[in-house]
């Protein structure tokens, strides 16, 4: 499915994501890494304070689209792959990989790189490459 190039909207969205990361660090002293925050909502080892803060951040993420619907009258535009087996494998890999590798697009890609962390630069370069190769294989080598 083709999508149109939206540099300004994407830049604006990126600025909001950055503002959110700075706000969370300024008020709570925590990295806005979504895989970490989500995992901490469920992990048994999390103390109750961290669990509460993580759960509220996640709740904010969940409320964004419904509020978008209420204010604009329609859901945000999206197209999601519908093959259930593919999405199950994708979900399992994303959840496992992000938690096992200590971060995802937000924790490593935005917050980690912003702190100048070499670990995050290495992780981001690695998952970007793996994702580009995956799309190359599924769309051009076997999907055709």
């Amino acid at each position: 499915m083709e999508t149109s190039f939206t540099p300004w909207l994407s830049l604006g969205g990126g600025l909001l994501i950055g503002a959110s990361a700075v706000l969370l660090m300024a008020t709570n002293g925590r990295i806005a890494g979504i895989s970490g925050l989500t995992s901490r909502v469920f992990a048994r080892s999390t103390d109750s304070e961290a669990r509460g803060v993580s759960a509220l951040f996640v709740l904010g993420l969940l409320l964004a689209a419904p509020i978008w619907l209420l204010t604009s009258g329609e859901w945000p535009q999206q197209w999601v792959p519908s093959n259930p087996a593919l999405m199950a494998v994708a979900g399992l890999l994303v959840g496992f990989g992000a938690t096992y590798g200590n971060g995802c697009t937000s924790g490593h890609g935005v917050c980690g790189i912003s702190r100048g962390s070499l670990r995050s630069v290495a992780a981001t370069a690695t998952f970007m490459t793996a994702a580009v190769v995956t799309v190359l294989v599924t769309r051009h080598l076997i999907g055709g």
Partner: peptide, 29 residues
């Protein structure tokens, strides 16, 4: 551990087009 996690995460991201934040945001839709 960091790099193997990143490889698995990247493959999953390339298959489904979702990483954790967007998956949560898109869940109510």
């Amino acid at each position: 551990r960091l790099l193997s996690g990143a490889v698995l995460f990247g493959i999953g991201w390339g298959l489904g087009g979702f990483c954790p934040g967007p998956a949560l945001t898109a869940l109510p839709i």
